[in-house]
Amino acid sequence: MVVDDQLIEHMMSPKNYGSMENSDVEGIGKNPDNGEKVAVYLKIGKDEDEPYIEDISFQAIGCTTTIVAGSMLTEEAKELNLNGAKNLVNATLNLLTKLPPEEAACSEMVALAIIAAVDTYEKRQNEADYPVITYNVTQSCMPKEEDQ
């Protein structure tokens, strides 16, 4: 991880960290290997009937990398419409394929929590009680043991 002033700012004061009391929907990204998880909360606004992310926050059980990724990605997702948020998540997941799995897992968890929240919101347009969606990471931040 490159430690520069921008990264330190995110570590010292993570943007959008915390739960949201008046959120419309929540989504979870999880790493089943180590119990780490990210919860993303969305407040959805309407702009000419098109839903968009009016406010977003996140909480995490995870490492500093997860917090920095959450701070950066939630800041980018703010005020995007739902398609914009999906595009952001897809672009992030594509970028992560170029990183080693142990470095990619934390950011993947945040991206998946955002898309889980968006998907939960869309499901609830037809089924109000639809449960909060959880997506598990495909990468692992647990270093694999080398074959003997």
């Binding site: 330190i8 570590m11 010292m12 004061s13 993570p14 960290y17 915390g18 739960s19 119990g35 998880k37 919860a39 909480q59 995490a60 059980i61 917090i67």
Partner: peptide
């Protein structure tokens, strides 16, 4: 020069259902 308030702890971490697993972890 990098002092920061620790972030809020998620309640799942302290509202422990399984004390045995918590201690093992």
């Amino acid at each position: 020069g990098i002092l920061a308030v620790p972030r809020v702890v998620m309640k799942e971490l302290y509202q422990v259902d399984d004390v045995i697993q918590f201690l093992k972890d």
